[in-house]
């Protein structure tokens, strides 16, 4: 048993402070992203979610320029971008991908500028990598309280608007007729989304945070049609991917060539995608099974008819 555990968890896994922080923060972030992500997928706003995370990059790089914590940058710019998206009208289905694209393009342009300032003025060469791909093992424990508060806010907002949000995500007109303030609910949801994206930007990097947002939620929604089950399932898949990713990344220090770990973000994203592919296989399998059943039925029917014709003739 002891041998078994050292095989899975490389030596020192349970004694490393960085790993402890990563497990705690990663788990919390995965839950928040998964819960908000279920609505993102239902509302068909994956692009908006991704755009927010990319624009968060702008905030991260701007934070480096100003010398404040990247998380502050992520949250501030994420909220600003969410407001901008609401203004250009991403709540409407029509033309929203172009509107999202324009906000995204402008944001990316800004982050190009900020990163340029980072490298030229402050000589922080690692900034680009940290912002874009995250550094889960480098989260300082001093940001934990802020992360916890933000996670609580995002989950609280989602819980608060859960029912009206679900209704307006399924059909805006019905929701409006039922007296739901659709616009306000949409804005509150964007707020939760911006926070969730900022949080996952800290853990697996700004441009990969979409993985935690969309992947577990999409997988869960393909397995379960019940919203509550989907939320639970998405959280489970998200947390599973992050924790397994952390274990693998930690272990990878001992993989050949030794002493050079693989990035956590890579493992997390790959795991999320593999989970999604499982549902794809499941759907294909179910399809194949129903086809086979149909063929069997048709064959039986043909035999039956043949027998009847023979009996009649």
């Amino acid at each position: 048993m002891g041998q078994m555990s050292t095989l899975v968890f490389a030596p020192g896994f349970f004694h490393s402070g960085a790993v402890g922080v990563a497990v705690a923060v990663g788990g919390a972030v995965a839950v928040v992203s998964a819960c908000v992500g279920v609505f993102t997928v239902i509302r068909g706003q994956s692009f908006a979610g991704h755009a927010l995370s990319d624009v968060a990059t702008t905030g991260g790089s701007g934070a480096f320029v100003l010398g404040v914590s990247p998380l502050t940058g992520y949250v501030v710019l994420g909220l600003a971008a969410a407001a901008a998206m609401d203004l250009v009208g991403i709540q409407r289905a029509r033309g929203r991908d172009v509107a999202t694209g324009i906000v995204l393009g402008a944001g990316l342009g800004l982050s190009a500028l900020f990163l340029y300032f980072d490298t030229t003025m402050r000589a922080t060469t690692g900034a680009t990598m940290t912002i874009l791909f995250g550094s889960m093992f480098a989260i300082s424990s001093s940001t934990i309280p802020l992360i916890a508060v933000l996670a609580a806010v995002a989950l609280g907002v989602t819980a608060l608007v859960y029912r009206p949000l679900m209704l307006s995500s399924l059909d805006q007109e019905i929701a409006r007729a039922a007296g739901v303030p659709v616009r306000l609910v949409g804005v509150l949801y964007l707020l939760g989304l911006a926070i969730a994206v900022a949080l996952s930007a800290v853990t697996i990097g700004a441009i990969l945070s979409t993985a935690l947002l969309v992947g577990p939620a999409a997988t869960a929604l393909r397995i379960s049609r019940r919203p509550a089950t989907a939320l639970a399932l998405a959280s489970l898949i998200g947390v599973g991917s992050v924790w397994l990713g952390i274990v693998l990344a930690y272990d990878s220090f001992y993989w050949p060539p030794r002493g050079h770990g693989w990035p956590v973000s890579f493992f997390v994203v790959t795991l999320v995608f593999v989970f999604y592919l499982f549902t794809e296989a499941r759907v294909l399998h179910r399809l194949a099974r129903s086809r086979a059943a149909l063929a069997r039925l048709a064959a039986r029917f043909a035999v039956h008819r043949q027998a009847r014709i023979q009996a009649g003739g």
């Binding site: 692009f47 991704h50 441009i207 990969l208 979409t210 993985a211 969309v214 973000s265 997390v268 994203v269």
Partner: peptide, 15 residues
């Protein structure tokens, strides 16, 4: 879903 698949393909490539 098209947007979901696009998002996932994107992040896998970035990973």
């Amino acid at each position: 879903r098209h947007d979901v698949v696009t998002a996932l393909a994107l992040v896998v490539m970035l990973g």
